[in-house]
């Protein structure tokens, strides 16, 4: 098996570039906590409304700098008792699950793009920098009303 000299140069370049890409995302993810949405907690999809934190969906202040937002996605909306309002500059930890089919909880123009899977709890921590009204939408097909599934979160 013979590699042309230039092919070797090209492959070394390619492998180095790919390694750098992986290094950058890996370091940023694991040492600066920039991991994508996820989580290993499970939940009984039929008992979502009785299980904490989804028994009291909405915003809860945990301490001075941290807020928790619990959201249940369902066809075709998100259960939130009142309007969602969170402060800018504070860490917001979103907990999302679904009580029926798979949905997403996606906040436009942010890194919050979470799948909502029945039986699982998805978590994502995010800190808003800009106040404003952000569109929340479902970007995973969930049925006839999928394109009507949206909400809003206000950052103050």
């Amino acid at each position: 098996m013979h590699f042309h000299k230039y092919e070797k140069i090209w492959l070394v370049f390619g492998i180095v570039a790919l390694t750098i890409f992986l290094g950058v995302v890996g370091v940023s993810a694991f040492s600066h906590d920039h991991t994508p949405a996820g989580g290993m907690h499970t939940i009984d999809p039929k008992k979502v409304n009785e299980t904490a934190p989804f028994d009291k969906p909405g915003v809860t202040q945990l301490d001075d700098d941290t807020y928790q937002v619990a959201i249940v996605a369902m066809a075709f909306g998100y259960t939130t008792p009142e309007k969602l309002r969170v402060p800018a500059g504070k860490e917001i930890v979103f907990h999302v699950t679904s009580s029926d089919v798979v949905h997403s909880f996606t906040i436009d123009n942010t890194k919050v793009n979470m799948m909502a899977v029945p039986g699982q709890i998805t978590m994502k921590s995010y800190t808003f920098t800009e106040p404003g009204k952000y569109l929340i939408l479902c970007n995973e097909y969930c049925g006839t009303g999928h394109h009507m599934m949206f909400n809003e979160i206000e950052v103050y």
Partner: peptide
């Protein structure tokens, strides 16, 4: 294809 979903650890 499942990077933003729960149930699989980082």
């Amino acid at each position: 294809h499942q990077l933003t979903e729960p149930g699989i650890s980082n």
